[in-house]
């Protein structure tokens, strides 16, 4: 038996919105420690990894490890039926091919039950190495979203350059070029407004902006975003999911042919 009850159901709605454009089908892995998911986009350029720890749920029970094959489009449709203030409960029997979703309004006067068919998925899981990065940049998530959106009008690629002075995002295309520089700003009143840069070695990498724009669908989950980079390895874009977990997006760089 698997059962997970989340009082702040809007978090699950936001997580789903942050995943659905990148991943069409994914295996949601349920263990006693929590829910996790790892999936690549269809072109195998990016990978997303979600962790929601068991202790973040008001009630969590998982008697046996379960891999639920989920069509993300269907999951989105059903989660859209939940109100933003609803409590969401997920339930599945160990051998069932269905996931039950229950949405309770805050005062309990409305209870909706949905059932979603699960799929048999043969997902390839990749081992993500735990590594140190040359640069870690924390910045307001809405600023990162804005930069990605703005520069995607200029070109298809963004060059991210991180030095001790700051981080620079540049794009160029047929009509011209654009550059946005963010400098460290430790004086901001709110922690989410701070820009912090930790660097052991300067880094310059080039990425396809369309993937970064998809990652920014997670913006509403967290006030800040962390970018981790080292030369010649995938970029990590991490959003916290309150104090219960995270979504990490990995994006392979463009390399010289």
């Amino acid at each position: 038996m698997f059962e997970a009850r989340l009082v702040q159901g809007s978090l699950l709605k936001k997580v789903q919105e942050a995943l659905k454009d990148i991943v069409q089908e994914a295996s949601w892995d349920c263990t006693s420690s929590g829910l996790s998911l790892q999936a690549m986009d269809g072109s195998h350029v990016s990978l997303v990894q979600l962790t929601l720890r068991a202790d973040g749920f008001e009630k969590y029970r998982c008697d046996r490890n379960l891999a639920m094959g989920i069509n993300m489009g269907s999951m989105s449709k059903i989660l859209k039926c939940a109100g933003n203030d609803d409590v969401i409960t997920l339930k599945a029997e160990d051998t069932s091919d269905r996931l039950e979703l229950m949405f309770e309004s805050p005062k309990g006067e409305k209870i909706s039950n949905y059932e979603m068919k699960l799929m048999d998925l043969d997902c390839e899981q990749l081992g993500i190495p735990d590594q140190e990065y040359s640069c870690s940049i924390k910045m307001p998530s809405h600023e990162f979203a804005r930069i990605c959106r703005d520069l995607s009008q200029i070109g298809e690629c963004v060059v991210i350059t991180c030095t001790k002075d700051g981080v620079q995002f540049s794009a160029k295309g047929d009509m011209g070029s654009g550059t946005v520089k963010m400098s460290q700003n430790l004086g901001a009143e709110k922690e989410d407004d701070q820009v912090t840069i930790e660097m052991t070695e300067p880094v310059q990498l080039t990425f396809a902006i369309k993937y970064l724009n998809m990652f920014t669908k997670a913006t509403s989950l967290s006030g800040s975003v962390c970018l981790s980079m080292s030369n010649d390895v995938p970029l990590v874009v991490e959003y916290k999911v309150e104090d219960m977990g995270h979504i990490k997006y990995f994006l392979a760089p463009k390399i010289e042919d």
């Binding site: 350029v45 990978l47 081992g127 995938p234 392979a252 463009k254 010289e256």
Partner: peptide, 14 residues
Amino acid sequence: KNKQASIMGFFSKK
């Protein structure tokens, strides 16, 4: 000219 790398080139299969 830059070429898009695959994420699978960086992470090993489990």
